[in-house]
Write a protein that binds this DNA or RNA. Structure first.
Length: 473
RNA sequence: CGAGAAGUAGCACAAUUUGGUAGUGCACUACAUUUGGGAUGUAGGGGUUGCAGGUUCAAAUCCUGUCUUCUCGACCA
């Protein structure tokens, strides 16, 4: 049991290296000669496809339509909203040549598509009858990051961005929260990721937004991963772009806007929340292969039994039969590094008792099951694994949230404890800056459901908000 | 972007200090024997040493530049 997987660095020894090892050994990504732009390998992409399938269905159910927008943004178009351009200018990639010819006006590769959608919305929104417009696109964007890591921070990002326009601010605000809830539910139920959901502070909000809501997950090492955002823009962009519609009362009005997005970064979140020293551990709902059958020996009876069991499984329970001529031990390890939720071992020894062995990946527990009951046992076990993975992650996260009352303790914890700290805050950006500068902790989100009383941990003035702070990826 | 480390077969590394026929293990291919936690034997295949220049009779090895990866920091919806 000691050195089953020698290729993966111990998670508690070097978490960063462990993460990189899992990404490679589970065959999720590969590198190319393009810095920070990973190759997502078939197994990694299959996870993304499952994520896409589920989310896309939710988007459609809530009335959204998919579109495809241009990849390039002319500089003048990017410059229309000044907060927005200020936020993104440092990290956009520019196209300056078309073939041999220098372009009259350079274009950036979209870092996000607000301006493209706005330009288009200006042309298609004329009446209140044209609202709401609920568009989404699945695409890649480019942000010229200096430090890159697979899934967590890349220069080319695979994501989904929803952009909507509404008749009233209330409706737009409701949309912002509606999509936030869809993300939250998806991450909890499908990815088994507990997330803190809340509003970003002024300092941390999206360039050009009025409100930014975030989903903050905590990784195994206590570091935060921002796993999605939903923004309410008010009418800033709409005004900047001159988007207007004639309302029922025959007056010209400006519509209200939202945008929301999640990326393949969620896959990084799954790895860093659930993975262990054997490799990846995938939540059943998004695992490309949910069950792997491993025959012990080559006896025909064994293979026939496997075929028979596999054929009784429901269509959504995707499976694979590993009938390669590797040794069983090799196959066990290979299935584990890939995080396949259930392994079924079948050998003559089992067949004599009319049984097979089920092994769950999350706990590595084994149990023998009568062949007549395998089908229902697998169904039940997949649900149990999904539930247990969430419960474990939730418990662990909650244990790593600390209620901190004074600044000295905050500084101490920032150095010596991994996790999030809950603090009282006066609302002044200067205090937020000071925390960041002196402790490296950034505000994650505002806590809405706790009563505020007592002094700000930094300046001692009466606190107006409770916030989570933590280090982030 | 700053500091540090690395790049030699798919992977892990040796040969670099002292320039002189590019090697080992795993993986891969074929056959045989195996199969309940990374099997064994035999026989094979695979390389412009990241890339581009330079020095030299001769460069994986020395010099310059560049690209990529990793770690830490800065930056980062």
């Amino acid at each position: 049991m000691s050195k089953l997987v020698t290729k993966i660095t111990d998670r508690d020894v070097d978490f960063s290296q462990w993460y990189t090892d899992v990404c490679k050994e589970a065959d999720l990504v590969a590198y190319s000669s393009v810095k920070g732009s990973m190759i997502i390998r078939p197994y990694g992409y299959a996870i993304w496809e499952n994520i896409q399938k589920i989310l896309d269905r939710e988007f459609k159910k809530t009335g959204h339509e998919n579109v495809q927008m241009p990849m390039f943004i002319p500089e003048s178009l990017l410059n229309v909203e000044k907060e927005h351009v200020k936020g993104f200018a440092p990290e956009v990639a520019w196209v300056t040549y078309g073939g041999e010819e220098k372009l009259e006006e350079r274009m950036c590769v979209r870092p996000t598509s607000e301006v493209l959608f706005c330009e288009h919305y200006k042309n298609i929104i004329h009446s209140y009858r044209d609202l709401p417009k609920l568009y989404n696109q699945w695409c890649t964007i480019v942000r010229w990051e200096k430090t890159t890591r697979p899934f967590l921070r890349s220069r080319e990002i695979l994501w989904q961005e929803g952009h909507t326009m509404h008749r009233t601010s209330e409706e737009a605000k409701a949309e912002t929260l509606r999509m936030l809830k869809i993300y939250e539910k998806f991450q909890r139920e499908c990815l088994a990721l507990p997330v803190l959901v809340g509003r970003k502070t002024e300092k941390e909000k999206f360039a050009g937004a009025e409100e930014t809501y975030t989903l903050e997950a905590m990784m195994y090492d206590g570091v935060a991963l921002q796993n999605g955002t939903s923004h309410y823009f008010g009418d800033h962009f709409a005004k900047a772009f001159g988007i207007q519609f004639l309302d029922e009362d025959n007056t010209l009005k400006t519509p209200y806007q939202t945008s929301w997005g999640v990326t393949t970064r969620m896959i990084g979140g799954i790895i860093m929340t659930h993975g262990d020293n054997h490799g990846l551990v995938l939540p059943p709902k998004i695992a490309p292969i949910k069950v792997i059958f491993i025959p012990i020996g080559t006896d025909e009876k064994v293979l026939n039994t496997i075929e028979k069991i596999a054929s009784t499984l429901k269509e959504e329970i995707t499976y694979k039969i590993d009938d390669s001529d590797k040794s069983p031990g090799f196959k066990f390890a290979a299935a584990e590094v890939k995080g396949i939720p259930i392994r079924v071992e079948v050998g003559l020894r089992d067949l004599e008792k009319d049984e097979v062995v089920l092994v769950r990946r999350d706990t590595l527990e084994k149990k023998s099951v009568k062949i007549s009951e395998v089908q229902t046992e697998i169904e039940k076990l997949l649900e149990t694994i999904q539930k247990d993975m969430y419960e474990r992650a939730l418990k662990r996260r909650d244990e790593m949230i600390y209620d901190v009352k004074d600044y000295e303790t905050l500084k101490d914890y920032a150095q010596n404890k991994a996790g999030f700290m809950k603090i009282n805050w006066c609302g002044d950006m200067a205090c937020e800056d000071q925390i960041k500068e002196e402790t490296g902790l950034k505000s994650r989100c505002i806590i809405e459901d706790e009563e505020v009383s007592g002094p700000c941990v930094v300046c001692g003035k009466e606190a107006t908000k409770r916030i989570y702070v933590g280090k982030q990826y």
